[in-house]
Design a protein around this nucleic acid. Sequence first.
DNA 1: ATGTGGACATAAGCTGGCGTTATGAGTGAC
DNA 2: GTCACTCATAACGCCAGCTTATGTCCACAT
Lengths: 311, 311
Amino acid sequence: MSDSTAAGQEPVTADRLAHRVPDLGALQLLIAIARLGSLGRAARELGITQPAASSRVRAMERQLGVALVDRSPRGSKLTDAGALVTDWARRIVEAAEAFDVGAQALRDGRDKRLRVAASMTIAEYLLPGWLIALRHERPGTAVQLLAGNSQFVAERLLADAVDLGFVEGLTVPSGLTGVVIARDHLVVVAAPTHPWARRRRPLDPEELARTPLILREHGSGTRQVLDAALGGLADPLLELASTTAVKASAVSGAGPSVLSELAVGEELAARRLVRVPVDGVPLDRALRAVWRVGHRPVGPARDLLSLTRAG
Amino acid sequence: MSDSTAAGQEPVTADRLAHRVPDLGALQLLIAIARLGSLGRAARELGITQPAASSRVRAMERQLGVALVDRSPRGSKLTDAGALVTDWARRIVEAAEAFDVGAQALRDGRDKRLRVAASMTIAEYLLPGWLIALRHERPGTAVQLLAGNSQFVAERLLADAVDLGFVEGLTVPSGLTGVVIARDHLVVVAAPTHPWARRRRPLDPEELARTPLILREHGSGTRQVLDAALGGLADPLLELASTTAVKASAVSGAGPSVLSELAVGEELAARRLVRVPVDGVPLDRALRAVWRVGHRPVGPARDLLSLTRAG
DNA sequence: ATGTGGACATAAGCTGGCGTTATGAGTGAC
DNA sequence: GTCACTCATAACGCCAGCTTATGTCCACAT
């Protein structure tokens, strides 16, 4: 039986992805070389010595089987392949930076700095970007992040356990005020191979309601909005515990899904998923920054808030 | 002088990102634990022993300062923080998978398998996704990837050095035929703090032409389309060598930019960039799969082609 | 022609992280 | 009580990657 890997989960690419992809340090080195035009300068910037950089680049080239850097006594420049690889590398590093600020925010609970509570979708997709921006504007701001559903956010705010909250949903919990910082649109998506992908006439609510969909589990904010929009009639083909798992299944063609635009922005742009037009289903919700009535955000909370108020 | 890090380049987050972000193996382990509900099973799946997995998770928790996994004699489950971290981890792993297939395609030149030439934008943003899909459908297909401009792609096809080409642009090079597989829209984007971000009335061509923009260097496909659309009048505020550098500058608020929708999909979804409406500027181009007249794609080339023909 | 300096390569040695095997210990089912 | 499962701990070995110390090449200035 081994483990029968449920539905369209991870097909476990291969056993040693980590051995075929250089580590973060190496990727950063490559990016630094692209920018600085010299192995040695790049090494210095990363706080290692030039021979170390030289050997890492060599190792990377051996690992990938492609020449990445044109060395010359006058400096180093990326090859064409190197430039392409470097752009792919940047996306890994960006994801790692988002991970880093997120993790830091999750940890920094001990210090009594800026404390934030956010709903899952916001914590996952929006907050890391805001925190990266915040770090640029106010370096040294330590943020603590708590993630949960709307009631949890409200409870933390009312208990004065956090300074600022972010919720997605139709209403503002009582005792709180806030501003709408963006709108989130749920979108119906399907793999490009799915019949719906070629569809031009919008779906109507009944058709959506009677088609089995890949969905998050009950209780997730996304699911709530969908159930409300369809009158509780969504028909799950598959219920998965994480947004990413849902995406992966949808991309692999297991079926259509309904997801936040935030979660599938990249997949839509890259045509791994296609948006299916829908009519007459209110798949919209506001994203709000909220705080306790009478406790207008000040200091770091105000800084963070102002970063978010523009979309 | 140290190094005066040009424009809005990398502000070098901090010196040891790699020391604050677990490596790929650890992230994959975490993802596997989330899916399988057990340290030991996850270890087995990754081909390591249970004590190794135990120690890695411990190390990760120490590194991040957050409890990630709830261990019990009945199995292991992620904590709330762990679930959030795991979702961030998935994005790193996805980027790494895209890197991996791309790099593999770049290398596999020796074998005479499927050889593909593509323009930069396609090679960077679309091909990795297609190749991941191709690997699922036809495991073991070795792909060689060459990236260059349209003339280069045409030349390789005509010389029979590649089996399939992908170009972005208004015309099909002579001697080739092909099909439109998608449309790429260039979009005007600005940081949410930029005045244009709040704009509702569309920009007109003159206004766009007289505003200094952050752009790729001359000769890039994106730049060509923009120059053509504006009659060669684009006014560069900054000319950078990579799409990612342009994005980073735009996000940091250095100025507005014009970029492919493919490149900024995620930034738009996460509101790190805002799309600015434009009127009367033809910022559209077709993405085409092309091949030599009379050499209809067969075999693996046909497989790949069919994967792309749905957006 | 001839230094001189910057940039990359090579060599030798050290260290630490991560892996292994072998074992202990808690919990629930029968 | 014993089995079957979980995770933790301990002792040890290996290899990747770092450092320091050098060598080589080339461009440019003198």
